[in-house]
Each structure stands twice: as structure tokens, then as C-alpha cells.
Design a protein around this nucleic acid. Structure first.
Lengths: 208, 208
DNA sequence: TTGACTACATACCAACCAGTCGGTATGTAG
DNA sequence: CTACATACCGACTGGTTGGTATGTAGTCAA
């Protein structure tokens, strides 16, 4: 099912175009014609590969999952021996990614799910899958870090992993509102500080 | 400029309708006709009060600012004598508000700015004003809490106030993706925990 | 009474929308 | 060479879109 990168098929060109156009204009405001123009293909090609605009939305979310998970899988933050260092380095990477323009660093599925969560269950599910699957890759490191530091907190690794995604998604919204990523970066700093406080208690009594 | 609440004018009915319809379908997917139908008025009334759909978007963001600021202004969390307690109680209130349905507790301006930040500067600015003005009401309490606890941290009251809004906006997105507010609530718990860690250091050396 | 004004309603339009359809070009298996 | 599949094209359609032009009922002041 994976496409050969040599010959860019119409389907791939449409999905790549969707990544950028949806992040600029949102899903609803992006017309099929516009998508075809951006991809350099015709409407016939569009409806040959996708039964409907909604089906492209689902495919776009899946495509986003694949490209981003591949990118994060080969990122160097995994190289740290200490699992907590891996988590911190992941957050640092997310902060670094806030450079560049807004349509470049914001999230396709975060944008799409806002517009479609009530009107298109298929797209919403695809967006949920994308976010949750990415969070699960963090969950493993967080769990390892918890074991490593002998933490038995009231929160779970899963909720903390999802919290990192909450902060990032929220940071994107504030960045869009402000027209720049400065406070988004500061918010990621707050997240980093929170993690450090959780995993490096300055000196606290151990219960049990 | 403030409307009398006695007689629901077409303008007010349109703005109230916008609050709910936009949160359900998003701004782009909400048509003027639909808005008029929801408000029980005709298109003539719409374009009498708003020059364009974009202008309604701006008015909707302003309307959102007014209604929410009025609601938070009379909320009981201000009654705490301790400023940090006020901040914590605010966050607790935001968590309580996560009950109810998604279109009820999510944010109009957070939804709108995602779709319009690149295509409508006027709406984006109105959304920014709404979020930033609300954050500023928190900033005062945070600053007071910082003085109260003699904190001289590397972060600013402003960035922390905005961070609370980042977490809330992100929580809304995750809630939409998941179809429920459970992890949104857990994320607000993480925010609460972060604030507690920042303002109640278990025992740390004082510099200077 | 009149005239100006506000607050709507009705009727309408051109552009645009998602989706369809008949057709072509290029395989590929037998 | 036949039979059929896949990939793609672009004109077309019926309905929807944001927006306009015009009408009218009520209000207030002179």
C-alpha cells in the first residue's frame, strides 16, 4: 500500500496538497477544486481516488499520521539512555519545530477535528487515532521514566502523554491568534518545567 | 452600545445563534442562511446589521468576550482572600465547566481563529483580543500570588496566564477528538498540579 | 401630515460548490 | 489481438453560497 516515492501519483499529490491547504484555510473552507489546482490534477482524478471530500479528510488524517510518525521515529531524541531525558528532548524538539511559518508547524488533525467533530464521525475518529497513536509513543518513555525514578503518582503515564499533546494543540491555537509562536514557545517551556518538577522533586518525603 | 436584554433584537438573536452554531459546525461551514434560520430572522436582517459574514465573525468574537467576561466576573472564585487560591479556584471552575455537551463548553473564538487566522485578519484580531483580555484578568491574581509567596521565577505572570488558556484550548481539541471531556479534565488536573508545584515549592533554597 | 430614519422582510443574482458522467490513455493477463 | 482494469481528464449539473436591490411597517420630530 505504501507509495513509491519515485513517481508522484495523483493520489499522493492530492494528499500532500491537502496537508498544506487544510492547514492554511481549514477543511471546510478548502474546496475540492482548490485542492486539485494545488495538486496539479483534475477533479476526475480526485473522485477516482476518493469517493467524497470527507473520504479525503480521513485519508489526509491517515497520511498525516504516517508522515509525522515516520519523522518522529527517526528523530534523535530517542538516543538518550535516560527515559526522562528522552521525554524532555521530545518536548525540546517540539519547541524547535515552532520556528517557521504557522501553516508549516501547526497540526492538520487538530485543525480538522475542530471543524468536523460533530458533522463527520469518520474524520473525527481518524484525527483521534492520529493524536492518540502519537501520544502512545510518548507513554512508553514516560512509563519507563516513572519506573526509573520510582514514582507512584496520582496521575497516569497516559494522561501525561496526552497532556503534552493538549499543550501543543493549545499552543497552536494561541500562535494562530497572536500571529506568532512566541507565547506558544513559552507555553512549551511551561510544559517542560512541569515535567521537570514532576520527575525531579527538589526534596520531598517519600510516602509508604 | 450594550443591548437592552428586554427586547431580543434580530442582531442579538443572530449573535446568540452564532455562539451555538459556530461551536457545532465551525465558522466556514456555517452558512448565513443557516444562521438566519437558527436565529429566526431573515437574510435582510442579517445584512442590515452586518456588512458581511466576516463582520459577523468579528461581532461574534466580541459578543463572546462580553458574555464570558461577565460570567467570569461574577463567579465566586474571586472571593478567596489568597490570590493563589483564586487562581486555583479559577482552574477548578474551568474543570467544572467541562460537564455538559461539547458544543456547550468549547470556545467560540478558539474554534474561529483556527479557520480564519490566515484568511481574515479582522476575525483573528478579535479572537486574540478575546483570549488575551481574559488571560489578563488572571494575570493580576498570578502577579499578586507571586508577590505573596515571594517568587522571583524565570517565567512571567503573563506567560503563565496565557499557558492556562493554552491548556484549556488544547483540552477542547482533545475533547472533540475523543468525543468526551474525560482527558480534557485530566489535563486541567495537570495544569492545577503544575500551578501548585510552582507556588508551593516543597522546600527550596531562596536565591539573592 | 409629512418626511427622514431604523429595522426588518422578500425576491433575486452571479459565483461557487461537491459530485457525476462519458471518454481516453496505459497498462496487463491470456 | 482480445478483454478487461486502473488512472486520469474536463465538461457539466443541480443545488448552495454570500451578497444585493427593493419594499414596507413602525417611530420620531417638525
Amino acid at each position: 500500500m505504501t507509495e513509491a516515492t519515485a513517481k508522484p501519483s495523483a493520489k499522493l499529490k492530492l494528499l500532500d496538497a491537502a496537508m498544506s491547504v487544510i492547514r492554511i484555510k481549514g477543511f471546510s473552507a478548502t474546496s475540492v477544486d482548490e485542492l486539485c489546482a494545488a495538486a496539479g490534477v483534475t477533479k476526475g482524478a480526485f473522485f477516482h481516488h476518493f469517493k467524497s471530500k470527507d473520504e479525503l479528510g480521513v485519508a489526509a488524517a491517515d497520511h498525516w499520521s504516517e508522515t509525522t510518525s515516520a519523522m518522529f521515529a527517526k528523530a534523535p531524541y530517542h538516543d538518550h539512555a535516560d527515559p526522562f531525558e528522552r521525554v524532555l528532548a521530545y518536548v525540546a524538539l517540539r519547541k524547535d519545530l515552532l520556528a517557521g511559518s504557522l501553516p508549516e508547524f501547526t497540526c492538520v488533525v487538530g485543525t480538522m477535528v475542530q471543524e468536523t467533530y460533530e458533522t463527520s464521525p469518520a474524520i473525527r475518529d481518524a484525527c483521534d487515532r492520529s493524536i492518540s497513536a502519537h501520544a502512545e509513543t510518548l507513554e512508553a518513555d514516560i512509563e519507563a521514566a516513572m519506573r526509573d525514578r520510582h514514582l507512584r503518582p496520582e496521575w497516569t503515564a497516559k494522561s501525561l502523554a496526552l497532556h503534552t499533546q493538549v499543550v501543543l494543540q493549545g499552543a497552536f491555537i494561541l500562535a494562530k491568534a497572536k500571529g506568532g509562536a512566541e507565547i506558544a514557545a513559552e507555553s512549551v517551556d511551561h510544559l517542560s518545567r512541569y515535567l521537570t518538577l514532576l520527575f525531579s522533586p527538589p526534596k520531598v518525603e517519600r510516602q509508604s
